[in-house]
Computed example of a mutant assay.
Amino acid sequence: MKDKADNTIILTKGSADTLYVQIPYNTVHIQRIRQVTGRRWETDTKRWIIPYSDASLQEFTKHFDALDVEISPELWVESDILRKWKLSGEQTQWKRDQLQQALKLRGYSRKTIKAYCNQIERFVASLPQINNGISASHVQTYCLSLLERGVSHSSVNQTISAI
């Protein structure tokens, strides 16, 4: 099993209008960074450069998991977008860890635990920012949207079990 540090994406400030993104080689991460408008690869330093703008940051945060990214202290202080994104990801991770432990104690397989956790993350990502918790109507609305997209009833039932 690879160490988490081996997979960490590092985001640092380059200049007033650029950010440096160091990504360990991973085809999924490469596909994601290529979706950020204005990105370019710097061969000499083996890092990506993206524009330091709200639009680029929002694109970047849409494509990457906050838990996979380490943000430099300077950016942490400067960027509300990055700080809020990183904090929201850490809150999700805490809940994910807790769920993984509970499912493991119940004897679920590693693949089932992964599937349940991923489904719950998709559900949580579909919600607006909620301060009062998740209600039954949130779950129903999400499940109905899955059915409308053609997801099978069996998959929706698994989603309900996971949530």
Rank of each mutant, 00 (worst) to 15 (best):
T12M: 08
Y25I: 08
E121D: 12
S72R: 10
R40H: 07
G150N: 05
E59K: 02
Q101C: 00
W76Y: 14
P73M: 04
S56I: 03
R34C: 10
T141N: 13
A102D: 12
T112K: 11
I134H: 06
Q100R: 02
N132W: 07
I163K: 14
K2P: 13
F64M: 04
K86F: 10
S72M: 04
A5G: 05
I50V: 12
F60M: 06
Q98D: 08
Q93N: 13
E121V: 11
I163Q: 14
S161E: 09
T92W: 12
G14V: 00
K111W: 04
L144P: 00
F64E: 07
F123C: 03
G14Y: 04
K104H: 01
L127F: 04
Y20T: 05
C117N: 15
C117M: 08
G89N: 01
S154F: 11
I81E: 05
K46Y: 09
S155C: 05
W48G: 00
W85G: 03
Q129F: 06
K13G: 02
T43I: 06
K4Y: 08
A102W: 00
I30C: 04
W76A: 09
D44A: 14
E59W: 02
K111H: 15
I130H: 10
E70M: 06
V36N: 07
A115N: 15
S79W: 13
Q119T: 10
Q101P: 00
S152D: 01
K84R: 13
V156H: 06
E148I: 08
S154R: 15
E59N: 05
L87I: 07
N131A: 12
F123K: 01
Q158F: 08
T112M: 10
S152L: 03
I113Y: 01
N118G: 03
Q58A: 07
W94Y: 11
T43S: 13
S145D: 08
M1I: 06
H63C: 01
L19I: 14
P128E: 14
W85N: 02
Q93D: 09
Q119H: 09
G89A: 03
L99S: 09
I81Q: 10
C143S: 14
I50A: 00
K13C: 02
I160P: 01
L11T: 08
S135D: 03
T45Y: 10
S137T: 11
A136Q: 15
L144S: 08
V28H: 09
R47K: 07
A55P: 02
L19H: 05
D68M: 13
D54K: 12
I160Q: 03
T27M: 11
L105W: 00
I30V: 08
H153Q: 13
A16G: 10
I113D: 01
Q35K: 12
Y52D: 13
V124D: 06
C117T: 15
R39V: 06
P128K: 11
Q101D: 06
L144Q: 12
H153V: 12
D97V: 01
T8G: 03
W94E: 14
N118Q: 15
V69L: 05
L11P: 03
K46I: 04
H63I: 02
V77D: 13
L127D: 05
A162D: 05
I120Q: 13
S145Q: 04
V69F: 06
I160D: 00
S145V: 07
Q22D: 13
I120F: 11
Q119K: 07
I10E: 11
K62H: 12
I10A: 07
F64C: 04
Q101S: 10
T8N: 09
S15E: 04
K46Q: 15
T45I: 04
L57C: 11
